[in-house]
Design a protein around this nucleic acid. Sequence first.
RNA 1: GGUUGGGUGGCCGAGUGGUUUAAGGCACCGGUCUUGAAAACCGGCGUACCGCAAGGUACCGGGGGUUCGAAUCCCUCCCCAACCGCCA
Length: 428
Amino acid sequence: MLDKRFILENAGVVQRNCDIRGVKVDVARFVDLETQRRKLQTEIEELARQANAVSKSIGQAKDAAEREARKDEGRQLREKKDRLQEDVERLGAEATLIHNAMPNLTHPESPIGGEDASAELRRGGPAVKPFSFPVQDHVALAEQHNLIDFEGGARVAGHGFYFLKNEAAQLELALQHYTLDLLIREGFTPVITPDLARGDVLKGVGFIPRGPETQIYSVENHDLNLVATAEITLGGLYAGQVIEAEKLPIKLCGISHCFRTEAGAAGRASRGLYRVHQFTKVEMFAFTLPEQSDDMHNYFRELECEIFEGLGIPYRVLDIATGDLGGPAYRKFDLEAWMPGRGNAGEYGEVTSTSNCTDYQSRRLDIRYKVKGEKGTLLVHTLNGTAVAISRALIAILENYQQADGSILIPEVLRKWMGKDRIGGNSL
RNA sequence: GGUUGGGUGGCCGAGUGGUUUAAGGCACCGGUCUUGAAAACCGGCGUACCGCAAGGUACCGGGGGUUCGAAUCCCUCCCCAACCGCCA
């Protein structure tokens, strides 16, 4: 959420920001409601002050008659206050609805426009080269080498679930290991988080746990939800905390399973592993000082590049356009990996995403920092970024490393955990 | 799942209706002393909101109630810990 005072003082800026992000919000209405609410709140506080003064004087009243008179006076003041309080709550409720709909402010360099306006910053990894043989997609490759059992997944849990088998199971662990090792070298604290979290934590991070629009699985009879990303648990880990400024930035990498209902996603390009209800993800998360978050965001993006560079997979980096940013993101970069089996002749597909949420999440989660010797506390900035989402990384690996004989090479950096260099065919 | 005990500022912790204006301690900041530091002593020191300021209001797990007045009494929900049971 945005700072209310900032909105009041910069209504024009906020309205324009909502406009370029394609979010319909009546900022003027919010300002109107909030201004009225504050005026009434001041009156309430004055009544409370008077009532408190009356209460205090009762202890020193000299006789019963005076005491009764004062009691009556106090009662009337509080009743008046309660009536105003109802108005304040009514105004506040409407203002909150608008407030919650307001997205974060936007980085000045983010391209303005819809999804198509996202800017390609650069390409990396090996160049995309045409194959000299008919390309198979990951579903066919997995079938051929008995790597993924979609039918079994459907039988056990329904469409969108799967069993990873044989080298695919090994690859999941190898990818985790590879990524974790890299991030630990970079000073991240590795964390394995809960896969479930309370509703309040989801809301604080910006997810909607229940209701018709939700993408979240929830547990019946409990205030627990299956997490859609470790961003939820890592953000929640510090909710309500005050961090000493010198401990910032804090860099965490969390491993969790991720569960998504993908409601409304039917029909979108989602064959095989691309859009599934469960996958494993290594997630980067950082808490920083405000002046550190831009650099940290670029650093997250470069780490994502480094990870795919190491895997030897062609990728491109996008600076996401304003109309395609989620509510909490101030700026977002996506990495798209080349997936040769996707579409007619190969397409880029999103494999990672990193967002700088500035103080939008921390305001709601109440995560602050304190500078030694200075009074008061300030909000930290939060950032998240995918290190590796296993299911999508698997698509990219299987499809890019397929060979003419149908075998699949294993990326060099993963071989030490695989005990082999190739799936199917003859070893090198 | 059962039983018991808990939830008070950054941390520990006192506090069963009105000098609590939340004691005291730790930590932290400033000062005295010192070549410097430590110790000792003196002073300061919760958070948010409104206000130019003086000052005010709210906050003792959440919500509701009783009362002129609630951290304190009542109702309700949540959470945590310990032990028991079950269990990888």
